[in-house]
Design a protein around this nucleic acid. Structure first.
Lengths: 197, 197
DNA sequence: AGGCCAATTGAACGTTGTCTAATAATTTAA
DNA sequence: TTAAATTATTAGACAACGTTCAATTGGCCT
């Protein structure tokens, strides 16, 4: 067959990515397959490669979509919340990861070959999410220490990430930790207290 | 051919695991292949499967070896260190991960299928490493708060893990963080200070 | 109508994990 | 010392994967 009028190239790209997103959520990164995506949307494997370029670029696009959803989730949970916004943010972090286990895990399972950098559009998404956290940290820090907000936010992001990661990969269950969210929140309040001496 | 007298079953198992370990260190988890391991030790792929059982069990055994090395590295760096042992421990954590990037990363890239638990021998190795950290935390905590050592150690392990993870996967570089080790150490001292109020 | 060109295909290739029937060597039994 | 049982090892088969690409299809323009 040749040109098909029912989908533009742009629409087809979106179809592939969103079907891939759906499939990744179901099967997880290890069992994800571009062939299966092609089959499900009724196109051949060749078309997927013509439109997306490679497995890596497909994964990048899918993970990018996950980042969008994650940011949306975070903003939704944070909107109209006036007190304890930091606790709410950490809760939203965990919530998204647990509700979208396969998608969230794939963000870190997938890596470009050594030496290759993430494309700009992807890097920007990561920075955007980080910026939300920086802003939240800035509001709870004394104005005199406003310059500490960015490095502190990066560090606390890593800290919360670690707690979330150990929750999902079973390490915390193995070690007998029963309330990882509160543990993460405790580390955040400790750090802010230390910075507000 | 049949039985070969030059290697006992036990020796062959060790050969496979240590050659797999070597190959994992070189190529990383994504490109690791049991077939290649077989080729390098001069046995066929079938033998590897007869001795190890499956790709998953081979990975488990290899990651178990990595955990052994990690614990050894940590103990070596900590031995005969009398002051600032906690700082030294975090440094050793980062050092091992950076020096053995592919091996360390594979500890978290590899996961058993959903629902399957890590075997006991593997869980015990994780607990053993954790116990070292618990002991270190206990020594810097006021005796009155000795019961906080275990949960605090778990949480700080997750925190340091997050910093190390973001260092190796490029997130920290992306965000402009230049000294992740000291950031992690700051979080640890903050937590201990808060617990020693 | 005829030709151009973008879109699409599916077969081909090399690689992977996994399984299994066949084979070879060793140990045990007669 | 043979014969039988046991164990170790192999290589080929299978399905699935990512990737490439020559061939083909069908809409568009002149």
């Amino acid at each position: 067959m040749g040109r098909r009028s029912d989908h533009s190239r742009e629409e087809l790209r979106d179809m592939i990515i969103s079907e891939g997103h759906r499939q990744l959520a179901e099967t997880g990164y290890a069992r994800f397959s571009a062939r299966e995506v092609a089959k499900r949307i009724g196109y051949s494997i060749g078309t997927v490669y013509n439109v997306l370029g490679s497995h890596d670029q497909l994964m990048l696009a899918i993970n990018g979509l996950t980042l969008d959803r994650w940011q949306g989730h975070l903003e939704a949970r944070l909107s109209a919340e006036t007190e304890n916004r930091l606790h709410r943010a950490i809760q939203a972090y965990f919530e998204f990861a647990i509700l979208n286990r396969n998608l969230w895990t794939a963000l870190y399972d997938f890596r470009l070959p050594e030496g290759e950098e993430m494309p700009d559009y992807y890097q920007q998404k990561v920075r955007d999410i980080t910026q939300i956290v920086i802003a939240e940290i800035a509001t709870v820090l004394p104005p005199a220490h406003a310059d500490r907000a960015a490095p502190l936010a990066r560090s606390l992001l890593a800290c919360v990430h670690g707690h979330c990661f150990f929750t999902l990969n079973g390490t915390f269950r193995l070690l007998g930790e029963t309330d990882p969210l509160e543990a993460a929140y405790a580390r955040v309040t400790d750090a802010i207290a230390a910075c507000s001496d």
